[in-house]
Structure formats: structure tokens, C-alpha cells
Write a protein that binds this DNA or RNA. Structure first.
Ligand SMILES: [Zn+2]
Ligand SMILES: [Zn+2]
Ligand SMILES: [Zn+2]
Ligand SMILES: [Zn+2]
Lengths: 161, 161
DNA sequence: CGCGGGTTTGTTACAGTGTATCACCGCAAC
DNA sequence: GTTGCGGTGATACACTGTAACAAACCCGCG
């Protein structure tokens, strides 16, 4: 389930992601435009969650300015297609490396040290969550589960510095 | 576990909350200043999550301006004391009506219709969450659990409009 | 080919959220 | 008194996100 270690670039992942994104868009009859490709590439390239303004800055160059609003639009598209997730507690975005089943929940594991964000399945918490909501008489439409802490690699490094 | 129905003011709750806050601060040797009292009152008064700027506006009056920065400082204090929670998905704040045990987790139940936010215990999800994190090799420090949906009362009202 | 209508992008402006900094005040301790 | 400290006021600023409109692009159709 681990995708980024945050200590080592993982361009293969980024490359695979772009290929998958292209396939997804083609299958759905949607445009995987250069801008969308670049934005997804920027998100996938760094091992950590990226803010929209960071992405805009990264894509800008002398002679070419990418405005944040353009990045937001691309991110909206990518999120709708399930290619990118938004991390509410960080106002930041990560690429999604998985094919989530529709309605499937996700837990985001956010490393406070290296900034990497991993995804885990909600499988083991779903029953308990459902019971809790049922008891409260609450009908859910959307859940956010974000856990901050130390990823395995950072924990190792702290133990032997 | 239900605290606000969002359809009916609940000033008793607000009043109790202020009393409890005062007791908590006294017990910890901290100052429950007029501003902090007002901010907590403003948060507790409305049945729904309040933004910092909403609070600032509500506390301001002709001849007296309460700047957002002051509200943020009061909110920081109140959050440190566990008297207020921040709802990450809404950039908003709610009063806490419970005495949480240290390290105890909370699930926020956010009604998309009436805006009320209720709290539920994580008791029934904790085991599953721990197993999931264990498996991912992740050491948690802080969790955010926010569920959006319809509270019981709003669901009723939709059924018989 | 040229036209028409939807989609994408550029550009600007603006709203909303949160923080940094410094000055001032009140109070308690020395 | 004066010194120190926590709280507040005030201004400015950084960061996050959206609205509105124009220009460019794409694609199918006459
Ligand atoms: Zn995902
Ligand atoms: Zn890490
Ligand atoms: Zn609480
Ligand atoms: Zn409701």
C-alpha cells in the first residue's frame, strides 16, 4: 500500500500515473490536455502533497505564467476523475495511485516529518463507522479520514539518527 | 450524543458551556477573559459551525470592532483547552460539549442541510483504525474524522415536506 | 471549406482564511 | 517604581479559492 517514501523520487510511479490517466480519459471520452497532464505530473512528481500555488509556480517559467486558477480547474477535473485527492487538513493535493471502487472510502496517512501521504483502505473501520452513524441517526454522504503521524521510514530514521 | 438540532436555539447549552469553560480555566490557572468568553459564546450560540470572520463580525458593533486576528487568538486558546473544535472541511469552529479523555478521538457529523455539527465517539472504529495503521507501519499522532450527510431531523423533514 | 457551439485556457479581479509584527495595556512580582 | 509577562488592538501581509469575461481551441455539420 505504500507508494511514496518521500526520501526518494519515484518517477516510475509518476509515469505510470500519466499513462493510466490518459487511458481513463480516453475511455470516458474526456480530454487529457497538456495542462492537465502537467498538473498531474507536478502532483505525482514530488513525493509530498502539493498546494495549488506550489504547482502553479512549478509549472511557470520565464516567459510562461501558469495562473493558480488554471491549476485549480485542472485539479477539479482530475479530482472528478478520481486521479487526484485533496487533503483537507493541508489544503494540498496528492495523486491517486489506485482504482477505487465507487463509494469506497480512503484513509490518508500523512507523515508530519517527510510530508508523504499514503492511502489506506477503510475496510476495517467501515462496520464500526456505520454502526456509530446508525446510532446517531445520521445518514452519511461523504467522509474524510486523515491521520497525521510518522511513516515507517521516518520512524526508523528517528530511532537511529 | 445529540447536542444541536440546528432548528432550535439552545441557549442552555451555551450557558452551561460558559460555566464549564470558566471552571476549566480556573482549575488550570488560566484566564477566561471577556474576549474569550464572548468568542466561546458566539460559537456556542449558533447551532452551526462558525467561521472566524463570522464570529468577528458578530462580536463587532458600531463603535467596537473585533478584528479576526483577535478571534483567531481566542479560538487557539479555546482549542488548546479542548473547549472548541475546528472542522477542517469547513474552515469553521464548534463548541465542544464533552469532556474528552486525553487522546480520545472524535467523529464530527456535519449536516449538509442545517449545518449542525454533532460529535460521536470513535470507540467503534478505533480497533479497525489501529489495525489498519499498524499494517501500514504508520504511527499516528492525530486523526481527523469528519462525516458529511443529513442529520436525523433534516432527514425527517425531507421525507415529509 | 467555413460556420456554430461546446470545452478549455488566459486574465483580471476579488472573496475568504490565516499569520507576522509591533505597540499598548493591565497586572503581578520584585 | 519598574520590570516582566500575558492579553489585546491594529496594520499589514501571505495563502487559498472563486467569479466573470474574453480568447483560443476542437469537432462535427452544412
Ligand atoms: Zn486514491
Ligand atoms: Zn515520513
Ligand atoms: Zn468535543
Ligand atoms: Zn440537519
Amino acid at each position: 500500500m505504500h507508494r511514496h517514501d518521500g526520501h526518494d523520487a519515484c518517477r516510475t510511479d509518476a509515469h505510470d500515473m500519466l499513462a493510466r490517466a490518459e487511458a481513463v480519459c480516453r475511455a470516458r471520452g474526456l480530454q487529457f490536455t497538456p495542462l492537465r497532464r502537467e498538473v498531474l505530473g507536478a502532483v505525482a512528481d514530488s513525493g509530498k502533497a502539493q498546494g495549488a500555488y506550489d504547482i502553479a509556480e512549478r509549472l511557470s517559467a520565464p516567459g510562461r505564467r501558469v495562473a493558480p486558477v488554471s491549476v485549480y480547474r485542472a485539479l477539479d477535473f482530475l479530482m472528478e476523475q478520481g486521479l487526484v485527492h485533496r487533503i483537507a487538513s493541508r489544503n494540498a493535493f496528492i495523486p491517486c495511485a489506485y482504482d477505487h471502487a465507487p463509494g469506497e472510502g480512503v484513509i490518508f496517512l500523512i507523515c508530519r516529518t517527510c510530508g508523504a501521504v499514503d492511502e489506506a483502505s477503510t475496510q476495517e473501520v467501515e462496520d464500526g463507522l456505520e454502526r456509530t452513524l446508525e446510532r446517531a441517526g445520521f445518514t452519511p454522504t461523504h467522509s474524510i479520514l486523515e491521520v497525521e503521524g510518522d511513516c515507517g521510514l521516518c520512524r526508523e530514521q528517528k530511532r537511529t539518527p
